[in-house]
């Protein structure tokens, strides 16, 4: 049974999210292929993407530490549901690989696309490297995805 009267409503609103100072700096650094984490002065944890506050220690973070663009695949999945890629506005064909990556020099993990979508070629613990956009522009998608090294 369906509704006798169903009113369809499309919410056509746009939001403007402020990324915050730490993320602005993070993006600007990407244009130089530089990645920096913020380190907590209390627990020493190096947060990436950087954010201004350590929730565990309740401390503001200001110390920047360098992070390499290579790291370790901590977890992976292959997603079979197509999505609208928010970075391009175009549909992203499925299946595609998605990983949790701990870059060398960081303690938290980063979600990102994987170049590989074949489960037989993905392994927890694999080394991965960022694939950079040829013309960098200081934006989040300067890193296109990560490729498996071995």
């Amino acid at each position: 049974m369906s509704e006798r009267i169903a009113v369809k409503h499309t919410m056509d609103l746009a939001w403007r999210y402020a990324s915050g100072e730490a993320m602005e700096r993070f993006c600007a650094d990407l244009s130089d292929r530089r990645i920096e984490a913020l380190r907590c002065g209390g627990c020493g944890r190096r947060y990436l993407p950087p954010r201004p506050f350590c929730g565990n220690c309740r401390l503001r973070m200001t110390e920047r530490v360098p992070v390499r663009d290579v790291g370790t695949l901590v977890a992976w999945t292959v997603v079979h549901t197509p999505i609208l890629d928010g970075r391009t506005g175009e549909p992203r064909p499925a299946p595609y690989g998605m990983g949790l990556i701990r870059l060398d020099g960081a303690d938290t993990t980063l979600n990102h696309y994987l170049a590989e979508a074949d489960p037989a070629r993905l392994r927890v613990g694999s080394r991965v490297r960022a694939v950079w956009r040829p013309a960098l522009r200081g934006a989040m998608d300067d890193i296109l995805h990560f490729e498996v090294l071995s």
Partner: peptide, 25 residues
Amino acid sequence: DPIFLQPLGVNFSTIAGLEARLLCD
């Protein structure tokens, strides 16, 4: 997070897949 994760299309089922991978590994 709308700045870093939403543009990548990360949703609850994607994260669940990552969690499940950690366990079955």
